[in-house]
Design a protein around this nucleic acid. Sequence first.
DNA 1: CTGAAAGCGCTTACAG
DNA 2: CTGAAAGCGCTTACAG
Lengths: 351, 351
Amino acid sequence: MTESVITLEDVARAAGVSPSTVSRVLNGSAKVAAPKHDTVMRVVRELGYRPNPIAQGLASGRSMSIGVLTQDITSPFYGDMLHGIEEGLYGSPYHPVFASGHWHVEDETSALHTLLNRPVDALIVLGGHTPDASLLALAGRVPVIAVGRRLHGHDLACLNIDNVSGAHQGVQHLLDLGHTHIAHIAGPSAHRDARDRLDGYRRALQNAGLPINDQLIVEGDFMEPSGLLAVETLITRGAPFTAIFAANDQMAYGARLALFRRGIRVPEDVSLVGFDGLPGSAFTTPPLTTVRQPTFEMGRAAAQAALNALNGNAPHLPRLATELVVRESTALHRARTARRARKTVTVGGAP
Amino acid sequence: MTESVITLEDVARAAGVSPSTVSRVLNGSAKVAAPKHDTVMRVVRELGYRPNPIAQGLASGRSMSIGVLTQDITSPFYGDMLHGIEEGLYGSPYHPVFASGHWHVEDETSALHTLLNRPVDALIVLGGHTPDASLLALAGRVPVIAVGRRLHGHDLACLNIDNVSGAHQGVQHLLDLGHTHIAHIAGPSAHRDARDRLDGYRRALQNAGLPINDQLIVEGDFMEPSGLLAVETLITRGAPFTAIFAANDQMAYGARLALFRRGIRVPEDVSLVGFDGLPGSAFTTPPLTTVRQPTFEMGRAAAQAALNALNGNAPHLPRLATELVVRESTALHRARTARRARKTVTVGGAP
DNA sequence: CTGAAAGCGCTTACAG
DNA sequence: CTGAAAGCGCTTACAG
């Protein structure tokens, strides 16, 4: 580890060329004679030279960093996306810089300013509530990629999963198991995603020719405690249900706990389906059936789109699909279980 | 939102002073006559001027960013610390820049280089396996704060909780409940924290005059699946136990699932204690009794120590303590439960 | 193909 | 107290 800082000039001197030439071979920004090219590379290696990104940034007007506006680095949901972004940027000269809005519009605005002010060369926005207009204005200055939120008039650079069909998938699974009284723990109605999932729930029921009972729909806030409260509300209301579709896994965890405290078994008494596919959902008791969002892939795709945009190409965001992950929190509706059990016995003969 | 970029010079021109003066009032680096000071401030406000950190960095030799070397931004454990770091830096002119080692020494080295290369003005290292020597060498160049790892000869800037006594706390809770056959799912022995917790487990048993049965100790890797496997191993070995102390919550989740699959009830048949106090542990079924680490506070303290060091003061890291959080995964050992139940009946009279 | 020069937007001795 | 000037370490037209 050489501790003294080596500059472009040191390299130039040692290689017997001008700083301009060194810069050119390093950036490949112009043809350099092969022999010179080689000595420069050799000297760079010998001296262990690493360009100073700050100086590069100032001179070139680029900071080599990509801002990521997230809500919460602690969240398992966003965390996975951040991981995907890191992965997507790996090997590129760009480095992600994160700033969190903590679900508060003011924090989000301040985080956005911090990022722009660094400055960043591109911006990846994960959800949040910054007004479309602000983001669109930014998009004129710097490439903006939006994930999990819509940006009217900027469709090319938005990555969204289909929440309606994702929710439909989850509810359909319950319908296929014979459930007809399916409750829904919705996300906050201010959330587009939450509204879409509620919509998917409704459509699945309608397609199955089932009525929609508003008594079976409770709004939560995407956090665990609200899932717990939702189940309490449901039970208080008294409308019978044999299955719950929660708009995200965290609320499903809360619901699971409420059921547990009441001695209501999952899935024997009530089937439970979540949404998101958090890593932890594979280790709840029982492991949670959920509609997985490809969060890691979403992050990676966003990073690649940002890189594309930075290279002057179209961002190109893929269409990513949700996936139903069937685990152990869902089971056949009892009536059908009974029927099947009887049938099995009949077929199998004895006891 | 003014879109054109405003520079120091623009402000100077509009205020009728030199750029030097503007810089001085902004940084408070020298006395400036009150009237000039005021006009400058007014112009800054009117124009919405924000200094370019890149240029500041190049000129001052500081980048105004603090590098945070973490293992995994996805991890609930580290995530909380990162959140604390964000909080601790909030309001200061410094911004955190994260880089992840993903538990691989090579990734960690590369992440470290990326950070130093930006460069960063200070470094916060969360755990990891970068050799002491490398970190110590760095500490000569830039303030280094280490959290969750030791750095010989750099004690002032290391923040560690007492893992031995934390583990002791957890096991003591089980002992207090009357358990005498307590299994331990240890972390990887290459981990100092894991060894310390194992040590705390042993001491608690010894202090209670209980033998240490190696058959009751299984090594995991701090991830959920290893907790599951550990329980299987324990059951296969056949040594009876009525309680488990897991070296972290994630392994406790895995253990819980293994128990669940076997139809072994928690806490009726087996009590379970974790370590870390992850947010999710309040919503497992049953909610997990655990030894909480003050992760958020640790992150915040590290950030403040970095800020202190940057201001030329001693880092000053507080001594943070673990805390036993008793929830519902632990219960009196059955023999005592029975005795107490009898007693209760006796005292209370009728059935 | 390559060097000398200007410039990115600041900070900070250096004079006064 | 304050301005003119140099300089941070690069990049990039501009000439040749």
